[in-house]
């Protein structure tokens, strides 16, 4: 029930931000449609801890900040690699082990690997993640396990 209420609040916030019209009639329509959506989602029982991961809380914000720094560095790396392929291009394919227990943690980890340019998750099989990487530096970045540790910290091994 708590998750339904928080879903309604999130929907309402998005509606208010996107609409831009605040007359009573239009806002009433917005409240009614958000209420209907939340009610349908409650009846269909599609809200679980995966589709609405509010318990991750502020830790994931800090993780996003760190991830953005990594993305910036990796972008410079890939741009160099595109401009001078003879010097930097060293593609490789390797497997790393994810230490997260839950599916959501593994998905966050695999998506973080893909979001960082230079490394792409090719296959995700239980806790074995197959990664294709563009340069030696990006491969070492994943193999060192720094990102893995941080994701596990965010999930608090739930």
């Amino acid at each position: 029930m708590l998750k339904t209420i928080s879903l309604f609040l999130v929907l309402m916030a998005v509606w208010l931000l996107l609409s831009g019209h605040y007359t009573p009639l239009i806002t009433g329509f917005g409240v009614a449609s958000c209420l209907l959506s939340a009610l349908i989602a409650y009846r269909m029982d599609v809200i679980d801890h995966e589709s609405h991961p509010i318990y991750l809380g502020p830790r994931i914000i800090f993780y996003w900040g760190w991830l953005f720094g990594e993305i910036f560095k990796a972008n410079v790396d890939v741009a160099k690699c595109v401009l001078f392929p003879k010097q930097f291009l060293r593609p490789s394919l390797f497997t790393v082990t994810a230490s997260q227990k839950s599916d959501l943690g593994r998905v966050i980890y695999a998506n973080s690997i893909t979001l960082t340019p230079g490394t792409v998750t090719v296959d995700l099989d239980d806790d074995q993640i197959m990664v294709h990487s563009l340069t030696e530096d990006s491969a070492d970045g994943v193999k060192s396990g720094d990102m893995d540790r941080r994701v596990t910290q965010v999930m608090k091994e739930t």
Binding site: I71, F72, N75, V78, A79, C81, V82, T114, L115, P117, G118, T119, V120, H132, L134
Partner: peptide, 11 residues
């Protein structure tokens, strides 16, 4: 090429 496409998507 996927790496190059990901560069446009992110930064």
């Amino acid at each position: 090429r996927i790496h190059a496409g990901g560069m446009a998507d992110t930064l």
